[in-house]
Nucleic acid binder design. Structure first.
Lengths: 235, 235
DNA sequence: CGCATCTTTGAGGAGTCTCAAGAGAGGTGG
DNA sequence: CCACCTCTCTTGAGACTCCTCAAAGATGCG
């Protein structure tokens, strides 16, 4: 298992047509003109990563914006004692690492592949230049930054206002369509990862699921079933 | 004491020359051309607020970006039980409320004046239009969004990695110039407010100061003295 | 000086973490 | 198809942190 990846260490590839399709289908690109998209993807490269590969590390120089083409990426910070705090988890189709672009090309957190993943890199200097040229690129970047800021604020508020079972209930409700009273879905990752995302120890997540069982939530492996949406909302 | 302010309820004024100076001296405007700044300030208005005035509330429509001209503003979210979680505290010269601009003009949090405050409002539709026209405005907006996102991520990471005394130590160190080993400064607000900003109950902040006393921190009213920077960093 | 507000201190309790061990799931090879 | 192994997840027990409530002590303002 390769624990650390550094620029230059790894084989970089050109985008294939599937990679391009994922990028163009992502939220960031959906509002862009073909010309703008092409200009961004010009010179983009792809790397493949195994589980636990480090994509970048806090305070190191970073000259790309990243996009998950397949797999999953965890962004986190390290405490002095080596403990890790997750900032966000990005699934396929999400851009991340754009902050460094505005902060002297230094990463403010670490990023790690969860499971084997394919990652696209867009040259951030190029992107900045294009943002001056195409207002819709600037607009898309602002919306990206806003969404990511919002995600962090949501997490912060939830951490401060909700208990562990309430945070888990909130996560489940976020995957539940509005109208339905009963619903089921599959977790997109291991419980381990969910625990980190919610700022919990794995044991605490497990106990939270136990507590929610009494409110009509059934958990089997990665399958979650909700039998009574109302009860969950009141939790 | 007026607890709630709503658009239209309050007397709005034009910017006076001092207001303009504060705005132009703020971080947001420092990189802008005079033409761009003038275009933004065209049509800006000012309102005066007493302590605890609400500037906007979650999910309500907001069509301005705000700037603190004097005083202090607290941005927070409400839990179902009425408890409040601070997202950020903005001092004089800081813009806030820019998120609503990218999210359908709906506020994602509440904002409240701490102490009597003067607030400028910049029309957000105007700002958006200008961002398409002036690349440096778009750039400044991106940097603003990035800084605010970063602030939230910093808070989140600190909440998850540090104990109460460690968070207080980190706050103090953030006000301490790099070279010095001994230092003192005055809190820019009541301890109450600091507690909220750090995600602590006021009692917990008090106890954290007690704990830090053993590491060479003296607290008298709002004055903080650090006698041994190293000890604080190790805490 | 007196009152209101802010801050500190104490005691008890809720919530979450850590460590340790047991149960379950998934994969591999016989 | 089963036995075995590994990895993940769950459960239990104890410790620790922080919150809440209550009361006493500062602080500041009129």
């Amino acid at each position: 298992m390769r624990l650390l990846f550094r620029a230059g260490t790894m084989k970089t590839l050109r985008l294939n047509s599937n990679d391009k399709a994922v990028l163009l289908g992502s939220r960031f690109f959906e509002t862009l003109s073909a010309a703008a998209s092409d200009a961004i993807l010009e010179g983009a490269v792809v790397t493949n990563h195994e589980e636990h590969d480090i994509l970048f590390q806090q305070d190191e120089p970073v000259d790309s914006v990243f996009c998950v083409l397949s797999g999953l990426v965890r962004v986190y910070r390290l405490g002095k004692d080596g403990r890790e705090a997750d900032i966000a988890v990005f699934p396929k189709g999400e851009l991340f690492g754009e902050n460094a672009m505005f902060l002297g090309n230094r990463a403010t957190a670490n990023a790690q592949a969860i499971g084997s993943s394919t990652i696209a890199r867009l040259d951030s200097r190029n992107l900045r230049k294009l943002a001056e040229q195409y207002p819709d690129i600037a607009q898309a970047l602002m919306e990206l930054l806003c969404r990511h800021g919002q995600m962090a604020e949501d997490c912060l508020a939830e951490d401060r206002l909700l208990t562990a079972p309430q945070r888990v209930a909130s996560y489940i409700l976020g995957h539940c369509p509005d109208g339905s009273t009963t619903f089921s879905f599959r977790l997109p990752f291991q419980k381990n990862v969910l625990a980190g995302k919610l700022g919990l120890a794995p044991e605490a997540l497990s106990r939270a699921f136990s507590a929610l069982r009494r409110s009509g939530v059934t958990v089997k492996g990665r399958m979650i079933e909700i039998h009574d949406r109302q009860a969950l909302e009141r939790f």
